[in-house]
Amino acid sequence: MFRHSINSFIYRSLLTPNCCYFSSQIAKTNVNLVKSDFKQQQQQELSVKTETNELTTTQETNVLSEEDKRALAMVIKSPVDLDTYWEMALKEKKFVKKQTILDKKGGISTDLLKFLHHKYDISIPGIKRRLRYYIEFREIYNQRYINRRHTIIGPELATAHLVVYRGGRVQFRHAPNVWYTKCKQFPNIYDERYRLTVVDASNIKLRYEALDNFILLNSLQELNLSKNKHLDDFACDKIARLFRNSKNLTTLDLSDNPLITSRGIETLHRIRSLKKLIISRTKAANYPFIDLLIILFTDVNPNCEIIIK
Protein backbone atom coordinates (compact mmCIF):
# COMPACT_ATOMS: atom_id res chain seq x y z
CA MET A 1 0.00 0.00 0.00
CA PHE A 2 2.84 2.38 0.86
CA ARG A 3 4.52 1.69 -2.51
CA HIS A 4 1.29 2.33 -4.44
CA SER A 5 0.72 5.59 -2.58
CA ILE A 6 4.25 6.78 -3.42
CA ASN A 7 3.73 5.92 -7.12
CA SER A 8 0.42 7.81 -7.24
CA PHE A 9 2.03 10.81 -5.52
CA ILE A 10 4.86 10.88 -8.10
CA TYR A 11 2.39 10.65 -10.99
CA ARG A 12 0.31 13.50 -9.59
CA SER A 13 3.40 15.61 -9.15
CA LEU A 14 4.49 14.86 -12.71
CA LEU A 15 1.09 15.70 -14.18
CA THR A 16 0.61 19.00 -12.40
CA PRO A 17 0.63 22.13 -14.63
CA ASN A 18 3.64 23.59 -12.83
CA CYS A 19 5.80 20.61 -13.85
CA CYS A 20 4.69 19.03 -17.10
CA TYR A 21 6.93 16.24 -18.35
CA PHE A 22 6.85 14.01 -21.35
CA SER A 23 5.83 10.36 -21.29
CA SER A 24 9.47 9.29 -21.79
CA GLN A 25 10.43 11.04 -18.55
CA ILE A 26 7.53 9.36 -16.73
CA ALA A 27 8.67 5.99 -18.01
CA LYS A 28 12.22 6.69 -16.74
CA THR A 29 10.90 7.38 -13.25
CA ASN A 30 8.98 4.06 -13.28
CA VAL A 31 12.10 2.19 -14.39
CA ASN A 32 14.09 3.78 -11.59
CA LEU A 33 11.45 2.71 -9.04
CA VAL A 34 11.49 -0.87 -10.31
CA LYS A 35 15.28 -0.93 -10.16
CA SER A 36 15.27 0.29 -6.58
CA ASP A 37 12.76 -2.45 -5.55
CA PHE A 38 14.86 -5.09 -7.29
CA LYS A 39 17.99 -3.92 -5.46
CA GLN A 40 16.19 -4.16 -2.11
CA GLN A 41 15.14 -7.74 -2.86
CA GLN A 42 18.71 -8.67 -3.84
CA GLN A 43 20.05 -7.22 -0.60
CA GLN A 44 17.51 -9.24 1.43
CA GLU A 45 18.43 -12.46 -0.42
CA LEU A 46 22.12 -11.84 0.19
CA SER A 47 21.52 -11.31 3.91
CA VAL A 48 19.57 -14.62 4.12
CA LYS A 49 22.34 -16.48 2.28
CA THR A 50 24.98 -15.14 4.62
CA GLU A 51 22.96 -16.27 7.65
CA THR A 52 22.56 -19.80 6.22
CA ASN A 53 26.26 -19.96 5.41
CA GLU A 54 27.10 -18.99 8.97
CA LEU A 55 24.81 -21.72 10.30
CA THR A 56 26.38 -24.37 8.06
CA THR A 57 29.87 -23.30 9.09
CA THR A 58 28.93 -23.53 12.77
CA GLN A 59 27.42 -26.99 12.17
CA GLU A 60 30.56 -28.13 10.37
CA THR A 61 32.75 -26.86 13.18
CA ASN A 62 30.56 -28.55 15.83
CA VAL A 63 30.73 -32.08 14.40
CA LEU A 64 29.28 -34.74 16.74
CA SER A 65 31.53 -37.45 18.00
CA GLU A 66 30.65 -41.13 17.67
CA GLU A 67 29.54 -41.39 21.30
CA ASP A 68 27.25 -38.37 20.88
CA LYS A 69 25.80 -39.91 17.71
CA ARG A 70 25.05 -43.15 19.55
CA ALA A 71 23.41 -41.26 22.41
CA LEU A 72 21.34 -39.28 19.91
CA ALA A 73 20.30 -42.46 18.10
CA MET A 74 19.17 -43.95 21.41
CA VAL A 75 16.94 -40.94 22.04
CA ILE A 76 15.51 -40.83 18.50
CA LYS A 77 14.56 -44.53 18.48
CA SER A 78 10.91 -45.15 17.69
CA PRO A 79 8.59 -46.73 20.33
CA VAL A 80 8.37 -49.90 18.21
CA ASP A 81 12.11 -50.53 18.37
CA LEU A 82 12.44 -49.38 21.96
CA ASP A 83 11.50 -52.73 23.49
CA THR A 84 14.01 -54.64 21.38
CA TYR A 85 16.67 -52.07 22.23
CA TRP A 86 16.12 -52.44 25.94
CA GLU A 87 16.13 -56.23 25.64
CA MET A 88 19.50 -56.04 23.90
CA ALA A 89 20.80 -53.53 26.42
CA LEU A 90 19.75 -55.69 29.35
CA LYS A 91 21.42 -58.71 27.79
CA GLU A 92 24.65 -56.82 27.18
CA LYS A 93 24.68 -54.90 30.47
CA LYS A 94 23.34 -56.80 33.42
CA PHE A 95 22.31 -54.15 35.90
CA VAL A 96 23.01 -56.06 39.11
CA LYS A 97 22.94 -54.00 42.26
CA LYS A 98 25.32 -55.16 44.95
CA GLN A 99 23.59 -55.74 48.26
CA THR A 100 25.60 -54.29 51.11
CA ILE A 101 25.37 -54.83 54.84
CA LEU A 102 27.32 -51.77 56.00
CA ASP A 103 27.47 -48.34 54.47
CA LYS A 104 30.57 -46.20 53.92
CA LYS A 105 30.52 -44.81 57.46
CA GLY A 106 30.35 -48.27 59.03
CA GLY A 107 26.66 -48.18 59.94
CA ILE A 108 23.78 -50.41 58.85
CA SER A 109 23.01 -50.03 55.15
CA THR A 110 19.57 -49.35 53.72
CA ASP A 111 19.60 -52.72 51.93
CA LEU A 112 19.87 -54.56 55.25
CA LEU A 113 17.14 -52.39 56.81
CA LYS A 114 14.85 -53.10 53.86
CA PHE A 115 15.49 -56.83 54.23
CA LEU A 116 14.76 -56.76 57.97
CA HIS A 117 11.58 -54.68 57.66
CA HIS A 118 10.01 -57.05 55.11
CA LYS A 119 7.59 -59.61 56.58
CA TYR A 120 8.67 -63.09 55.53
CA ASP A 121 6.35 -66.02 56.09
CA ILE A 122 8.73 -68.89 56.88
CA SER A 123 6.04 -71.23 58.10
CA ILE A 124 5.32 -74.45 56.22
CA PRO A 125 2.01 -73.16 54.73
CA GLY A 126 3.75 -69.93 53.71
CA ILE A 127 6.57 -71.78 51.96
CA LYS A 128 4.05 -74.00 50.14
CA ARG A 129 2.08 -70.95 49.07
CA ARG A 130 5.22 -69.33 47.71
CA LEU A 131 6.18 -72.46 45.78
CA ARG A 132 2.69 -72.73 44.27
CA TYR A 133 2.87 -69.12 43.16
CA TYR A 134 6.31 -69.67 41.59
CA ILE A 135 5.15 -72.82 39.73
CA GLU A 136 2.04 -71.04 38.44
CA PHE A 137 4.08 -68.05 37.26
CA ARG A 138 6.53 -70.31 35.42
CA GLU A 139 3.72 -72.23 33.70
CA ILE A 140 2.06 -69.04 32.51
CA TYR A 141 5.38 -67.63 31.29
CA ASN A 142 6.33 -70.80 29.40
CA GLN A 143 2.93 -71.00 27.67
CA ARG A 144 2.97 -67.42 26.40
CA TYR A 145 2.73 -66.42 22.75
CA ILE A 146 6.22 -66.05 21.23
CA ASN A 147 6.16 -63.92 18.10
CA ARG A 148 9.61 -65.04 16.95
CA ARG A 149 8.60 -68.70 16.99
CA HIS A 150 5.43 -68.08 14.97
CA THR A 151 7.24 -65.98 12.36
CA ILE A 152 10.01 -68.54 11.79
CA ILE A 153 8.09 -71.84 11.70
CA GLY A 154 4.50 -70.66 11.21
CA PRO A 155 1.40 -71.00 13.42
CA GLU A 156 0.82 -74.69 12.62
CA LEU A 157 4.23 -75.92 13.74
CA ALA A 158 4.37 -73.44 16.61
CA THR A 159 1.14 -74.83 18.06
CA ALA A 160 2.39 -78.37 17.50
CA HIS A 161 5.59 -77.58 19.41
CA LEU A 162 3.59 -76.13 22.31
CA VAL A 163 1.33 -79.19 22.59
CA VAL A 164 3.85 -81.97 21.94
CA TYR A 165 6.50 -80.52 24.28
CA ARG A 166 4.01 -80.79 27.17
CA GLY A 167 2.99 -84.37 26.44
CA GLY A 168 0.26 -83.97 23.82
CA ARG A 169 0.09 -85.26 20.27
CA VAL A 170 -0.96 -83.95 16.88
CA GLN A 171 -1.81 -85.08 13.35
CA PHE A 172 -1.13 -83.31 10.07
CA ARG A 173 -3.00 -83.31 6.78
CA HIS A 174 -0.20 -84.89 4.72
CA ALA A 175 0.01 -87.84 7.20
CA PRO A 176 -3.54 -88.40 8.53
CA ASN A 177 -2.87 -91.71 10.31
CA VAL A 178 0.40 -90.72 12.03
CA TRP A 179 0.55 -89.27 15.54
CA TYR A 180 3.45 -86.90 16.22
CA THR A 181 4.61 -87.15 19.84
CA LYS A 182 8.15 -85.71 19.72
CA CYS A 183 9.40 -82.26 18.75
CA LYS A 184 12.32 -83.81 16.87
CA GLN A 185 9.87 -84.99 14.21
CA PHE A 186 9.08 -81.38 13.20
CA PRO A 187 11.19 -79.28 10.81
CA ASN A 188 13.02 -76.22 12.10
CA ILE A 189 11.71 -73.96 9.33
CA TYR A 190 8.33 -73.21 7.81
CA ASP A 191 6.89 -76.01 5.64
CA GLU A 192 3.60 -75.75 3.75
CA ARG A 193 2.88 -79.48 4.05
CA TYR A 194 2.42 -79.33 7.83
CA ARG A 195 -1.24 -78.40 8.32
CA LEU A 196 -2.81 -79.39 11.64
CA THR A 197 -5.97 -81.46 11.46
CA VAL A 198 -6.14 -83.05 14.94
CA VAL A 199 -4.76 -81.67 18.21
CA ASP A 200 -4.88 -83.80 21.37
CA ALA A 201 -4.00 -81.36 24.17
CA SER A 202 -5.64 -83.33 26.98
CA ASN A 203 -4.09 -83.37 30.47
CA ILE A 204 -1.12 -81.12 29.70
CA LYS A 205 -1.98 -78.31 32.20
CA LEU A 206 -2.94 -75.73 29.59
CA ARG A 207 -3.90 -72.24 30.76
CA TYR A 208 -5.74 -69.31 29.28
CA GLU A 209 -2.49 -67.69 28.07
CA ALA A 210 -1.63 -70.79 25.99
CA LEU A 211 -4.70 -70.29 23.76
CA ASP A 212 -3.03 -67.29 22.13
CA ASN A 213 -0.92 -69.81 20.21
CA PHE A 214 -3.99 -71.45 18.60
CA ILE A 215 -4.29 -68.85 15.84
CA LEU A 216 -4.68 -69.26 12.06
CA LEU A 217 -5.40 -72.99 12.32
CA ASN A 218 -7.72 -73.04 9.32
CA SER A 219 -7.33 -76.79 8.64
CA LEU A 220 -8.03 -77.95 12.20
CA GLN A 221 -10.88 -80.49 12.46
CA GLU A 222 -10.65 -81.90 16.01
CA LEU A 223 -9.53 -80.16 19.17
CA ASN A 224 -9.28 -82.04 22.47
CA LEU A 225 -8.80 -79.80 25.54
CA SER A 226 -10.08 -82.22 28.17
CA LYS A 227 -8.57 -82.67 31.66
CA ASN A 228 -7.09 -79.19 31.82
CA LYS A 229 -8.31 -78.03 35.20
CA HIS A 230 -7.23 -74.39 34.70
CA LEU A 231 -9.48 -73.74 31.68
CA ASP A 232 -12.62 -71.77 32.53
CA ASP A 233 -15.36 -69.69 30.90
CA PHE A 234 -12.86 -67.08 29.70
CA ALA A 235 -11.00 -69.84 27.86
CA CYS A 236 -14.25 -70.87 26.15
CA ASP A 237 -14.81 -67.30 25.02
CA LYS A 238 -11.25 -67.19 23.69
CA ILE A 239 -11.78 -70.44 21.73
CA ALA A 240 -15.03 -69.07 20.28
CA ARG A 241 -13.28 -65.90 19.10
CA LEU A 242 -10.35 -67.80 17.59
CA PHE A 243 -12.48 -70.25 15.59
CA ARG A 244 -15.56 -68.16 14.82
CA ASN A 245 -14.64 -68.08 11.11
CA SER A 246 -13.46 -71.69 10.93
CA LYS A 247 -15.09 -73.96 8.36
CA ASN A 248 -13.36 -77.22 9.31
CA LEU A 249 -13.53 -77.48 13.11
CA THR A 250 -16.18 -80.13 13.79
CA THR A 251 -15.27 -81.68 17.17
CA LEU A 252 -14.45 -79.90 20.43
CA ASP A 253 -13.83 -81.84 23.64
CA LEU A 254 -14.01 -79.86 26.92
CA SER A 255 -14.75 -82.74 29.27
CA ASP A 256 -13.25 -83.00 32.78
CA ASN A 257 -12.73 -79.25 33.08
CA PRO A 258 -14.43 -78.42 36.38
CA LEU A 259 -14.28 -74.61 35.99
CA ILE A 260 -16.36 -74.45 32.79
CA THR A 261 -19.96 -73.42 33.46
CA SER A 262 -23.03 -72.82 31.32
CA ARG A 263 -21.88 -69.27 30.55
CA GLY A 264 -18.76 -70.57 28.86
CA ILE A 265 -20.79 -73.06 26.79
CA GLU A 266 -23.08 -70.25 25.62
CA THR A 267 -20.17 -68.46 23.97
CA LEU A 268 -19.35 -71.46 21.77
CA HIS A 269 -22.41 -70.94 19.57
CA ARG A 270 -20.28 -68.61 17.44
CA ILE A 271 -18.39 -71.61 16.02
CA ARG A 272 -20.89 -72.49 13.27
CA SER A 273 -18.88 -75.44 11.94
CA LEU A 274 -19.19 -77.47 15.18
CA LYS A 275 -20.92 -80.84 14.93
CA LYS A 276 -19.92 -82.41 18.25
CA LEU A 277 -19.37 -80.67 21.60
CA ILE A 278 -18.39 -82.79 24.62
CA ILE A 279 -18.94 -81.14 28.03
CA SER A 280 -19.21 -84.18 30.31
CA ARG A 281 -18.00 -83.87 33.95
CA THR A 282 -18.05 -80.08 33.94
CA LYS A 283 -20.13 -77.59 35.91
CA ALA A 284 -22.18 -76.97 32.78
CA ALA A 285 -23.19 -80.65 32.67
CA ASN A 286 -24.70 -80.30 36.18
CA TYR A 287 -26.56 -77.11 35.30
CA PRO A 288 -30.25 -77.54 36.27
CA PHE A 289 -31.48 -75.91 33.04
CA ILE A 290 -29.07 -77.73 30.74
CA ASP A 291 -31.91 -78.92 28.51
CA LEU A 292 -33.00 -75.36 27.87
CA LEU A 293 -29.39 -74.43 27.13
CA ILE A 294 -29.13 -77.24 24.57
CA ILE A 295 -32.35 -76.10 22.88
CA LEU A 296 -31.08 -72.53 22.62
CA PHE A 297 -27.71 -73.74 21.34
CA THR A 298 -29.25 -75.95 18.66
CA ASP A 299 -31.47 -73.08 17.49
CA VAL A 300 -28.34 -71.17 16.51
CA ASN A 301 -26.35 -74.21 15.36
CA PRO A 302 -28.76 -77.07 14.52
CA ASN A 303 -26.00 -79.38 13.23
CA CYS A 304 -24.16 -79.50 16.58
CA GLU A 305 -24.64 -82.40 19.03
CA ILE A 306 -23.92 -81.66 22.71
CA ILE A 307 -22.78 -84.67 24.74
CA ILE A 308 -23.31 -84.37 28.50
CA LYS A 309 -22.54 -87.90 29.72
Rank of each mutant, 00 (worst) to 15 (best):
D68S: 12
S202P: 06
S13C: 04
T181A: 08
R130C: 11
E156H: 15
E136H: 09
I101K: 14
Q41G: 03
Y120R: 05
S78V: 07
E60W: 00
N224I: 08
Q99T: 08
R132F: 11
P125E: 07
V96E: 13
N53C: 04
Q41T: 10
R129S: 15
D121E: 04
K98E: 10
Y208T: 09
E92I: 06
T159G: 04
S262P: 00
R130A: 14
T267Y: 06
G264I: 05
Y180I: 14
I152R: 09
Q42D: 10
A235V: 01
D81W: 06
V198D: 05
N62W: 09
V178W: 14
K94G: 11
D83N: 13
K119M: 07
I135G: 00
E87D: 15
R244K: 15
E305T: 01
N32Y: 12
A89C: 03
K229P: 00
A160N: 04
S246E: 03
R169T: 02
S24Q: 10
V178Y: 15
D81M: 08
R244C: 14
I306E: 01
L252P: 00
V80L: 10
L274V: 06
I10D: 04
V48E: 15
C183M: 03
K182I: 01
H230Q: 11
I26R: 15
T197K: 01
E51H: 07
I146A: 04
F243N: 06
I135E: 09
K119I: 12
Y134T: 05
P288N: 05
H150K: 05
L196W: 01
